[in-house]
Simulated scan of single mutants.
Amino acid sequence: MAQGRGSATLGGLLAVCLLLGVVAHIADAETHKVDWSFNADAWSKGKNFRAGDVLEFKYDRTAHNVVAVDAGGYYGCRSAGTTYNSGSDHITLGSGTNYFICSLNGHCGMGMKMAVTAN
């Protein structure tokens, strides 16, 4: 009988350690303030990003938006994706390359787009 209680305590301890590891990983996430403007890709060059980091996009919502797109949307300036238009958007990066464009007034074609790779 005592053996069963010890196993439960060990299981509880493992669960707490796992939870602390998840919380520590989340605490390691950084928030990056994006210069959401034309030639936005230049802003992301040379920076290191991790999955879970947050990009903070601040912009004039009457003139711009942010659309999270796939690679085809990024290269072809197609806005099929999730659109953000609050003027103060917080987007959590997934693992791999994350693509963003402005879909208003031909801005993507004028360079208002960004690819961010998160490790």
Rank of each mutant, 00 (worst) to 15 (best):
I101Q: 04
L55P: 09
M112C: 08
T31Q: 14
A51F: 09
G12W: 00
C102K: 01
A42Y: 05
G111C: 03
Y74H: 13
C77L: 13
D28T: 11
W43P: 12
E56K: 12
S88E: 05
V66P: 04
S95A: 15
A63N: 15
A118L: 05
L18S: 12
V116F: 00
L10K: 14
L55W: 06
G11R: 11
C102S: 06
H64E: 05
C102F: 03
V34W: 06
T62A: 07
S37F: 02
S7Y: 01
C102Q: 02
W43Q: 07
G4T: 08
V23F: 08
F38P: 06
D60P: 11
A2G: 14
G106N: 00
G81L: 11
F57D: 10
L19T: 15
W36H: 11
V69M: 04
S103W: 01
G87C: 01
A118W: 05
A118M: 06
N98D: 07
N39S: 12
V16P: 02
E30M: 09
V16C: 00
C17M: 08
S44A: 15
A115H: 07
T82E: 15
A15E: 03
A27V: 09
V16M: 02
T31A: 10
T9R: 06
G6I: 02
A80E: 13
G106P: 02
S37M: 09
L19D: 11
N85L: 00
G12E: 00
L20W: 08
H32T: 06
D28A: 11
T82D: 13
V34Y: 07
G46A: 03
G76Q: 08
K58D: 03
A63K: 15
N119D: 12
F100S: 02
G21P: 13
